[in-house]
Amino acid sequence: MSKKKTARIDLIVHRVGEDMIHSARTDFNVAHAVNTTKAVLSSLGVARGVVESTLIDTRSMSNADLEGFGKDLAAALLSGEVTGLYSKTASGCRIQLGICVDDPLLKTVPWEFMFWPDLQTAPHPHRCVARLVPGTDIKPLPPLKLTSGGRVLLAVAAPTNQPNVDWIETEADMKRIFAANTNDTDLKSIDFRLVEAATADALRKAVQNFDPHIVHFIGHGRPDGLWFLKHRSNAGSVVPTSMLRNVLASDSTRLVVLSACDTANVGTDIAPLIPLAERLVRGGIPAVVANQMPMSLRSVATFCAALYSDLLQEGDVDWAVNNGRIAVGVAYANVNAATVEWGVPVLYRRPGCSQLFTAG
Rank of each mutant, 00 (worst) to 15 (best):
M1G: 14
M1K: 05
R8W: 10
R8M: 14
D10C: 08
D10R: 04
L11Q: 02
I12T: 14
S23L: 13
A24R: 03
T26M: 04
N35C: 07
A39K: 07
A39M: 01
V40W: 06
L44R: 05
A47Q: 04
A47C: 08
S53Q: 08
L55V: 05
S60H: 13
S60N: 12
A64M: 08
G68H: 13
G70I: 02
L78S: 04
S79H: 06
G80R: 02
S87E: 13
S87M: 08
A90L: 05
I95Y: 15
I95Q: 13
G98A: 00
I99R: 04
D103E: 08
P104R: 00
P104M: 02
D118T: 15
P123W: 08
H126E: 11
R127M: 13
A130P: 02
A130E: 11
T136F: 07
D137W: 09
I138A: 14
P142R: 01
L144V: 09
L144N: 03
L144M: 09
L146F: 04
G150P: 03
G150K: 00
R151E: 06
A155E: 13
A155W: 12
A158Q: 07
P159S: 00
T160K: 05
N164M: 08
N164Y: 09
V165G: 04
W167K: 07
A172V: 09
D173L: 14
T182W: 05
T185H: 10
T185M: 11
S189E: 05
S189I: 01
F192G: 08
A197Y: 12
T199D: 13
A200Y: 08
D201G: 10
K205H: 14
A206L: 02
H213S: 15
I218G: 00
G219W: 08
P223Y: 07
G225W: 05
H231N: 15
S233L: 05
S233R: 06
A235V: 09
P240L: 10
L248R: 08
V256T: 11
L258R: 06
S259H: 06
C261F: 13
T268H: 02
I270W: 04
L273P: 12
L280N: 11
V281H: 08
I285F: 01
V289A: 06
V289N: 06
V289T: 00
V289C: 01
A290Q: 05
Q292A: 04
P294F: 05
F303K: 10
C304L: 09
A305W: 07
L307P: 10
D310H: 15
G315A: 03
W319M: 10
R325G: 10
R325K: 14
V330P: 00
V330G: 01
A331D: 06
A333Y: 01
N334W: 02
V344F: 02
P345M: 01
V346Y: 03
L347V: 05
G360M: 07
